[in-house]
Amino acid sequence: MAVVPTDNWLAEWIDNPLDLLKKTKNGKDDQQSFYQYLMKHGMYRSSRLASDTYEKMKEKKLWDRFALFEQKYKRKWNGPSVPIYLFPVQEKRGMFQSSMKKSGVCFKDEIFFFVTDQEDPKEYEALFVHEYHHCVRMKRLNKKDAEYTLLDSIIFEGLAENAVKEFCGEKYVAPWTKEYEEKELAKYYEKWIQPNLDIKRSSPLHDQLLLGQKAYPKMLGYASGYRLVNQYGMKRDSSTNTLMGVPSSTFVP
C-alpha cells in the first residue's frame, strides 16, 4: 500500500475526523487520543477551514503528486511500502501564531502529511523527502521504539534534512538549519545536548531538548543533529544512500 485515497475519505467524513482515523493503523483503537496527537503535528481542527483546503488539494492533484514521490524515493532508497495519508493542514493556529503550510509525522508503519496549496510545488517534495527518509531509516536501524535515544532523534532530523538538501536543493531546507551561528550552537550542544544524548524518548527532557521547549533554545535538537551530520559529511561521503543506515553514534565526534 502507498498513497491512501483519503481524498475519497474526506469527501464523506471531513466533518468527523475521528471516523477518518478509525481507518488508519495507529488510530484504529483510540481515535480521540491519536487525533489530539496529530493536531499537535498539524492536522486540521476546523472542518470548515479544512473543506477549503481540501478543494485546493484536489485542484493541485496532490494525491497523484505524492504517489509519484513515493514511487521515486522507494526506488532510490529501496524503501518500505507503507500507507501514506494526506489530510488538510491546520492553517490558522491562533492570533499570535503564523499560518502553517505543511507538516508531517512518520511512524514505522505509516506516514501522515498535512498540506495545503503551495506556490512552489517543490515544497511538497521536500516535505515528502524528510518524512519518508525517517521511515526508511527506521527500517534500516530496526530498533524497538523504547530503545531510541535523544541522539537517535537528532540524527534522524539531521539526516532527513540533509536528504532534502541533496534531492531538492539548499533553498528547501528548513529554517531551523540556519537558526544559529556555529559558535553559538556548539556552545548549546556542549551545555545541553551532549550530556543527555542517551536519554530515552520516554523522558520529558527528550522533547524539551529536541524541540527547544521550556527554557531551551527553539529547535535545539534538530539544529544540533543537522550540525553533526554536516560535520561528519565534510570529511566523508555524505550521500543519503551511504548514510541512511549508519548508527547514530557514528556521527558523534
Score class of each variant (00 low, 15 high):
Lys191Leu: 10
Arg137Tyr: 03
Leu185Ala: 07
Arg140Phe: 12
Glu161Thr: 07
Asp145Lys: 15
Tyr188Arg: 08
Ala186Phe: 07
Asn142Gln: 05
Tyr132Ala: 06
Leu185Lys: 08
Leu141Ser: 01
Tyr180Lys: 05
Lys139Arg: 14
Lys144His: 06
Phe128Ser: 06
Ile193Pro: 02
Trp176Ser: 07
Glu166Trp: 00
Phe156Asp: 02
Ala174Gly: 08
Glu179Leu: 15
Lys165Phe: 13
Glu184Tyr: 13
Asp152Ala: 13
Leu150Trp: 07
His133Lys: 04
Met138Val: 07
Glu147Arg: 08
Phe128Trp: 03
Lys191Glu: 15
Asn162Cys: 05
His133Arg: 03
Tyr180Phe: 08
Lys171Thr: 12
Lys183Glu: 14
Arg137Ala: 06
Ala146Glu: 08
Tyr189Cys: 09
Leu150Ile: 02
Ala186Ser: 11
Asp145Met: 11
Glu181Arg: 15
Leu151Glu: 05
Ala160Pro: 01
Leu185Pro: 10
Glu157Asp: 03
Tyr172Asp: 02
Arg137Lys: 11
Lys139Asn: 03
Phe167Leu: 15
Tyr189Ile: 10
Tyr172Pro: 04
Glu157His: 00
Glu170Lys: 15
Thr149Ala: 05
Lys187Gln: 01
Gln194Trp: 02
Ala186Gly: 04
Ile155Asp: 10
Ile193Gly: 04
Lys165Cys: 11
Ser153His: 00
Tyr148Phe: 15
Lys143Pro: 11
Leu141Lys: 11
Gly169Leu: 03
Arg137His: 05
Glu131Thr: 15
Ile155Gln: 10
Phe167Gly: 02
Glu161Val: 07
Tyr148Met: 12
Lys187Trp: 02
Glu184Gln: 15
His133Gln: 01
Pro175Ser: 11
Thr177Arg: 08
Tyr188Ser: 14
Glu166Asn: 00
Asn162His: 13
Glu131Phe: 12
Leu127Asn: 09
Ile193Asn: 00
Glu147Ile: 05
Asp152Ile: 13
Pro175Gly: 08
Lys139Phe: 00
Arg140Gln: 13
Glu170His: 09
Thr149Trp: 01
His133Thr: 10
Gly169Ser: 00
Glu157Ser: 02
Leu150Ser: 01
Ala146His: 07
Glu131Asp: 10
Asn142Val: 12
Glu166Phe: 00
Glu182Ser: 14
Ala174Ile: 00
Glu131Trp: 13
Lys178Ser: 09
Glu179Val: 09
Glu131Val: 13
Lys191Asp: 14
Tyr132Pro: 00
Phe167Trp: 05
Ala160Met: 00
Gln194Ala: 12
Glu179Ile: 06
Val164Phe: 07
Phe128Asn: 12
Asp145Ser: 08
Leu151Ala: 07
Tyr132Leu: 00
Ile193Phe: 08
Lys178Met: 08
Ala174Lys: 00
